[in-house]
Amino acid sequence: MLQRSLVPDSLPAVPGLETAVHYHTAAPEQLGGDFYDLFPVAGDRWAFFLGDVCGKGPEAASLTSLTRYTLRAAAHHDPEPAAALATLNAVLHERYTAGGDPRYCTCVFGIVEPGGEHGPTIVRLASGGHPSALVLRSDGRAEFLPTPGGLLVGVLPDAPISTVETVLAAGDTIVLYTDGLTEARTGPGRDDLYGEDALRVFGTGLAPAAPGEVITALTGLLDSFGDGLNDDTALLALGVPADSSLIRPATSLPS
């Protein structure tokens, strides 16, 4: 299935981090939609990204494919998040928008430097028009990492890209998601949406939680939306184990 080439079957094990993912497919007959990846780059760092392409069907699938391979190549050339997204923006703009066929994606791209026993784990994110990442802290707080001002990737030749940095302490987990989650309908009207405020409250109820727990809980939340969940939804969580002796390999929860 082509969809299989658009997201990895499972994530690689990252030393010093726990990871978990989930991909919900709204319409199995339609390809495309959301994407994510996680891979090593130079300097004991790991790059990860998650995003959402516009449109549906084969056009969206080809855009997803171009996006994934461009980001992978860009990250090996310069893993700085803003640089990787700037490269993607230039590629998508040249390939589509400049020719009168605008296609674009929202994307959050991150670099994580696992600290292990030697220091803090630092995450740097860049966002192009993507919903803010959520961090569940070990002390029970849940907070967004706002990246205001970032623009849909591929719209303008030189796009503003918003960046943010945070430190993950032992027991902290960062969650990336696509807007299928926050735009899920929770009422009869087209404007009755789940929303970011409800997600933060949900995260506060979970925190502290390891990535596997967070993804399991969010998967249950997605299921609870029923027919209100009408878009593909990707979830990716990275966390520093509260007890480093308990590091588990990546888990992938099929839809």
Partner: peptide
């Protein structure tokens, strides 16, 4: 306009491209 999804937004961007061109 009562509803606009991402393909609607794409149409707005295509209109922008058409005007700028």
């Amino acid at each position: 306009l009562e509803f606009c999804d991402s393909t609607g937004i794409t149409a707005l961007l295509a209109a922008r491209q058409h005007a700028l061109a």
